[in-house]
Simulated scan of single mutants.
Amino acid sequence: MADIAALTKLIEPHATAMGLRLVRVAMFGGKSDPTLQIMAERPDTRQLVIEDCAELSRRISDTLDEVDPIEEAYRLEVSSPGIDRPLTRISDYDDWAGFDARLRLSETIEGRKQVDGRIGGLDGDTVLITTPKTRETLRIPFTSIASGKLLLTDALIKATAPLSTEGVDTISQER
């Protein structure tokens, strides 16, 4: 499987040169149908338009063709993070405080491997999340979060209404 840290180092300069911020670099699909997924956004809008996807895809493609860091054939997908975006950086938990999220934990914490609740921001390197049933605020070390994502709610839809509804926000191509 591909080295995600090495791929990120190849991709990030292209995103930065375009004024974009990487949200996630990941490989999915296994050996039968591997996909290299690149999620990026404009820091000021948290969105990506089709032209951004296309340009970033072209830039990345040239570098990936030159360096050839992935042995098998794969699909390259460049997209916005979408409304129910993944929470991949510690800063995401401050940026999205007040919204609902689902956290999958890499270890059991207080008898849980998954927590759904309202993000309360950060306390140092600890994510605060309040569960809806018990209204208790759990303290989850960022390093204990295997994955996190926002949950689709009316409040999230309102807060992330697109600046423009033109175009599509995903480009996919066979490699």
Results as ranks from 00 to 15, higher is better:
Ala2Gln: 05
Ala5Ser: 07
Ala6Leu: 06
Ala6Arg: 13
Ala6Thr: 10
Thr8Gln: 14
Lys9Tyr: 00
Ile11Ser: 06
Pro13Asn: 11
Ala15Arg: 08
Ala15Glu: 08
Ala15Lys: 08
Thr16Ser: 12
Ala17Phe: 03
Leu20Asp: 05
Arg21Val: 14
Leu22Ser: 09
Val23Lys: 06
Met27Lys: 09
Met27Asp: 12
Phe28Tyr: 13
Gly29Trp: 02
Gly30Arg: 12
Lys31Phe: 08
Lys31Trp: 04
Lys31Gln: 12
Pro34Thr: 12
Leu36Lys: 10
Ile38Cys: 06
Ile38Asp: 03
Met39Phe: 03
Ala40Leu: 08
Glu41Pro: 01
Arg42Cys: 09
Asp44Glu: 15
Thr45Pro: 02
Arg46Asn: 09
Arg46His: 09
Gln47Arg: 08
Leu48Arg: 07
Ile50Glu: 15
Glu51Ser: 15
Glu51Thr: 15
Asp52Tyr: 03
Cys53Ser: 02
Cys53Gln: 02
Cys53Thr: 02
Glu55Ser: 12
Ser57Ile: 00
Arg58His: 13
Arg59Pro: 01
Ser61Asp: 14
Thr63Asp: 10
Thr63Cys: 05
Glu66Val: 02
Asp68Phe: 03
Asp68Thr: 10
Ile70Gly: 06
Glu72Asn: 07
Glu72Tyr: 01
Glu72Thr: 11
Ala73Met: 10
Tyr74Cys: 06
Tyr74Glu: 01
Arg75Gln: 10
Arg75Trp: 02
Leu76Val: 01
Glu77Leu: 02
Val78Gly: 00
Ser79Arg: 10
Ser79Tyr: 00
Ser80Ala: 07
Pro81Asn: 05
Pro81Asp: 02
Gly82Gln: 08
Ile83Phe: 13
Leu87Trp: 04
Leu87His: 03
Leu87Met: 05
Arg89Pro: 00
Ser91Thr: 15
Ser91His: 06
Asp92His: 11
Tyr93Thr: 10
Asp95Ser: 05
Trp96Arg: 11
Gly98Ser: 12
Phe99Asp: 03
Asp100His: 08
Leu103Tyr: 04
Leu103Pro: 01
Leu105His: 04
Glu107Met: 13
Thr108Lys: 15
Ile109Met: 13
Ile109Cys: 06
Glu110Ala: 15
Val115Ala: 09
Val115Ser: 09
Asp116Lys: 13
Asp116Arg: 14
Arg118Phe: 01
Arg118Lys: 15
Ile119Asn: 08
Gly121Phe: 09
Gly121Ile: 08
Leu122Val: 10
Leu122Gln: 08
Leu122Trp: 05
Asp123Ala: 10
Gly124Met: 02
Gly124Glu: 04
Asp125Tyr: 01
Asp125Arg: 07
Asp125Asn: 11
Thr126Ala: 07
Val127Trp: 04
Val127Asp: 09
Leu128His: 05
Thr130Phe: 10
Pro132Cys: 10
Lys133Asp: 15
Thr134Asp: 14
Glu136Ala: 14
Leu138Thr: 04
Arg139Asn: 13
Ile140Val: 15
Phe142Asp: 09
Phe142Pro: 04
Ser144Trp: 04
Ile145Lys: 11
Ser147Ile: 05
Ser147Tyr: 09
Lys149Pro: 00
Leu151Ile: 12
Leu152Ala: 08
Leu152Thr: 06
Thr153Cys: 08
Asp154Leu: 11
Asp154Trp: 03
Ala155Cys: 04
Ala159Thr: 06
Ala159His: 03
Ala161Gln: 15
Ala161Ser: 14
Pro162Trp: 00
Leu163Gly: 15
Ser164His: 07
Ser164Arg: 08
Ser164Thr: 15
Glu166Phe: 08
Val168Ser: 13
Val168Asn: 10
Val168Tyr: 03
Asp169Gln: 13
Ile171Gln: 02
Ser172Met: 03
Gln173Glu: 14
